[in-house]
Every structure is written in C-alpha cells, then in structure tokens.
C-alpha cells in the first residue's frame, strides 16, 4: 500500500512538471485564442540560453535575469514581427505562423549557442528526501518536491495576475473579444507582448527544471508533446485545469505502468497520457475546466 502511495506521489510530482510546460500554452491561448506551437521551442531557447550563460561563468541569478530579459525581448519581437501583421486574420493562420516560429526558434537557439548536450545543475539534488524516507520509507525526490513548490508559486502568482487589477481584466477582455477590446481602448499589442513575455518566463522555469532532469539539448523541446494531453484534460484556457490535468496524467501513467504494466506489457508510460486525452476528447472536449463557449438562448 505504501508502495502504491509512493508511486502515486512521485507520479503527481512528475505531473506537475508537465503542467509547467502546459501553462505556457494556456497563457497564450487565453489571451489570443492562438495555440502556440512554438512553446516547446521557447523552452529550448530559454534553457539553452541559461545553461550557456552559466557555462560562460555568469553567476546563477544574473544568468537567470539575463535569460528572463532575453525571453521578454523575444516576446516583444515576436509580437512586432509575427503577430501584429496578422491581427484579425483567421486563427488558423496565426497557428500556422507559430509553427513557422517553432522551427525558426529551434534553429536560432542552436545556431547562436550550439547543439551539444549540456548538463544543468540548479543546486537542487535529485535524491530522496531524508526525513520522509527515514520516517515512512517512501523515497520521494527533493528535486520533485522543489519543482512542485516552484510550480505552485508560479501558478498562484499568474492566477492573481490574470484575475486582479487593470491588466488582468484587460487580458481576459482581449481573450473574449479582440475587436471590442480595441473599441474600449485596450491596445492588443501590449497585451500580447505581456502574455508572450509571461509565457517566456514560464518557459524559462520549465526549461531549467526539465534541463536538470534531461540535460539541455534539442530533445527538451519535445516535452511540449507531453503537455498536449495535459491541455486536453484540463482545458485549453484554464490555469487551474492545467495543474489538475498534469496531476492526473502524472499519477495515472506511473500507476498504470506499475500495476497494468505486468499484465499487458510494459512501456505504458509512453502512451497512457495520449489514450487518456483521446477518451477526454470523446466525452469532454472542453476539458475538465475549460470554458465552454457561452451561448445565450
């Protein structure tokens, strides 16, 4: 029983890591209705910049700060060059633009830095948490716990940012109706730059945490694929949905691997999330917390 609990907890914690990537998608989708295909590339960009700066001998926090600024500048540039000329085009066109952006960013990041595998150490050990291990015998990684904590703080602050105050209101207004938002004097450009910058910050945090786990290299951008089922479960436009979706998928795939694996053969972890997503698409296409389109009757 204790073992089941241990599996579930480590599953939940790894689920949070998926949520972290999915969060970037949600931010941009909420504010502009665009599914940002380039989120994975942004994670790569952020992680690579960060790790290379560290390797150049830049102190940890300064490197983090510089990367943060790079991501914000990137957001503004993307808004200027990619999004602004496409205002009020059909959403599918913006989506296509983000696919292009994805390839561009992948190339840019690896061109400016390099395509080697870089180890990243955040100074958090990926070792079992001793007090817990001693008292109950469960082996839960300190790194997982810290990642969950960081993610929690990030989500809480984004939630507050989105729901309180003038900018938060404007963000949600733009998410609802671009034209009406323009008509009341909300400049779409600023709002979009803000959400892309926020998504850049999320990408940096996700990139750093995943970077320590996987090593920083091209394949880190593929974690975005694991974020897709999380989005489908939680709903594309709900920040809390992303967390719940991540937890469900993380715990689900670990438990399935351990308990169903011996029965139907291993490797379940790799596809379980997508199966779950498909079931959700069939029965609850808006996800658990996604906003359904309001239709007045």
């Amino acid at each position: 029983m204790l073992f089941a609990l241990e599996v579930a907890i480590s599953g939940l914690l790894s689920g949070i890591m998926y949520s972290l990537v999915a969060l970037g998608f949600v931010l941009i989708f909420k504010a502009s209705g665009v599914f940002n295909f380039a989120q994975g590339a942004m994670v790569l960009c952020a992680a690579l910049t960060f790790v290379r700066l560290l390797e150049l001998g830049v102190p940890f926090w300064i490197a983090a700060g510089i990367t943060l600024i790079v991501m914000m500048v990137l957001a503004v540039v993307i808004e200027r060059i990619v999004l602004r000329p496409l205002v009020n085009q059909p959403l599918i066109i913006l989506f296509m633009a983000t696919i292009g952006l994805n390839f561009f960013l992948e190339g840019l990041a690896q061109g400016v830095w390099d395509a080697q595998v870089h180890g990243l150490q955040l100074g958090i050990d990926d070792l079992p948490w001793e007090p817990l291990a001693n008292s109950t015998g469960m082996l839960i990684s300190i790194f997982d716990l810290s990642a969950a904590l960081i993610c929690g703080v990030l989500v809480a602050s984004l939630g507050v940012f989105f729901h309180k105050g003038r900018i938060g209101r404007a963000l949600r207004a733009v998410a609802d109706d671009h034209q009406a938002a323009m008509a009341v004097g909300i400049p779409l450009q600023h709002i979009w730059a803000i959400v892309w910058a926020a998504a850049g910050i999320v990408a940096l945090v996700a990139g750093a945490l995943w970077g320590q786990r996987l090593g920083v290299q091209f394949s880190i951008s593929l974690v975005a694929l694991k974020a897709l089922p999380v989005l489908i479960l939680g709903g594309l436009n709900s920040i809390s949905g992303v967390i719940v979706g991540g937890l469900l998928i993380g715990a689900g795939e670990k438990l399935a691997e351990v308990y169903l694996g011996p029965i139907i053969g291993g490797g379940i972890e790799n596809w379980f999330a997508y199966l779950l997503a498909m079931v959700f698409l069939l029965f609850k296409p808006y996800g658990l917390f996604g906003e359904e389109i309001i239709e007045r009757v």
Partner: peptide, 29 residues
C-alpha cells in the same frame, strides 16, 4: 478612446466571461 471617441459596436460585444461590473471597468482602461 483617450481623446474621447468611443465606439459601441453593433451586436453588443460584451466580454462574456467577465462580470457586468468588470466589463464596465475595462472601459476605464
């Protein structure tokens, strides 16, 4: 809008997911 011209669009265009009061407040952006 800053200079004082404000359009009320055809077909109302409320921000559906905001409350009525939040809708009003967006006008003061």
């Amino acid at each position: 809008v800053k200079r004082g011209i404000c359009q009320v669009m055809e077909g109302r265009h409320c921000f559906g997911h905001l409350t009525v009061e939040e809708n009003l407040l967006t006008g003061a952006y």
